[in-house]
């Protein structure tokens, strides 16, 4: 480690305490997140970039699908969508969803499920040196049915061209972190007859674009047939948009009040996916339990 690197590391530690904070180090991946030689491996396929969205005109985005080894064309597969999919799809990444799916599907702890890992849109430019504007906050933090429609009208039909996907909403789930977490909830909230299983890690149920109203809405709206898993950390963000742990506690209290099938895990972490990733196998067992 040269002197400059030491300085940079010290700067990072001094000014950016949220990154790799000690509270997060306790959360490590368990055996169900690892590749196992004796477990059948599903296939991860990178799809051609999605460039012709009608819902989000002008955007492009990367996406991947995971097809389990046990998938058979004759039997409709369950579906699980991952917002910010790039952070979930890698076998050696933070969440390692393909490994977790391989292991849990092989044990019969979740159904044969096709995973759809999709990135938020960006507005590409002709100059590769320019940073493309991200459409992520608009797509994920906004309330309303736009993102549900994007998935239902554009992405799911594209996958269904080649794969037999279930239309049973109880077998369709959606998962995300942070703004992707509130997005996952919003999709199921807007289309409970299409998606009924939700995982939100460090979900932004704060006032980025009005999402802080969900606890109030949940309390005053007919109960929807959703199963909702929420994770947050006591040391998560507190900023101009709101306080993440309080917002998630408020969500959990509202789901409890209205009689939802929900679970809330409040850990000690900061604003990252480590705790959610460590929990993911257990989370999926709970989410997909009969």
């Amino acid at each position: 480690m040269n002197r400059r690197l030491i300085l940079l590391t010290a700067l990072a530690a001094a000014h950016l305490p949220l990154i790799a904070a000690q509270q997060d180090d306790q959360y490590v991946l368990g055996p169900d997140s690892q590749e196992k030689a004796d477990v059948p491996k599903g296939e991860v396929i990178q799809m051609p970039a999605w460039k012709d969205s009608k819902i989000y005109p002008g955007t492009t985005r990367d996406w991947w699908i995971y097809v389990p080894a046990q998938y058979k064309k004759e039997t409709p597969a369950a579906v699980m969508v991952f917002c910010d999919g790039a952070g979930f799809v890698k076998r050696d990444g933070q969440f390692r969803v393909p490994n977790v799916f391989d292991n849990l599907i092989a044990k019969g702890e979740m159904p044969v499920t096709i995973g759809i890992f999709i990135q938020p849109g960006t507005f590409p430019t002709s100059n590769p040196k320019e940073k493309a504007r991200s459409n992520r906050s608009f797509e994920y933090d906004s309330l309303g049915d736009l993102h549900a429609r994007f998935l239902l009208e554009e992405i799911l039909p594209a996958v269904a061209k080649d794969y037999n996907l279930t239309t049973n909403p109880d077998e369709r789930g959606i998962c995300g972190n942070s703004s992707g977490g509130i997005c996952a909830f919003t999709v199921a909230w807007e289309r409970p007859n299409e998606f009924r299983k939700v995982i939100s890690h460090i979900g932004s149920f704060t006032n980025i674009r009005g999402g802080h109203v969900y606890p109030a809405l949940i309390r005053k709206t007919d109960k929807k047939p959703l199963r909702v898993f929420l994770q947050d950390g006591k040391n998560d963000l507190d900023n101009q948009f709101g306080n993440w742990p309080l917002a998630n506690e408020d969500m959990a209290a509202a789901l409890k009040f209205a009689g939802y099938d929900y679970q809330f895990v409040l850990g000690e972490g900061t604003h990252n996916g480590k705790h959610g990733a460590a929990l993911l196998p257990d989370t999926l067992r709970w989410l997909w339990r009969k």
């Binding site: 989000y56 005109p57 002008g58 955007t59 507005f123 002709s126």
Partner: peptide, 12 residues
């Protein structure tokens, strides 16, 4: 989005 020729796309 402002295209190279100055025209606008992707309005939202």
């Amino acid at each position: 989005h402002i295209e190279d020729d100055g025209t606008l796309t992707g309005g939202a």
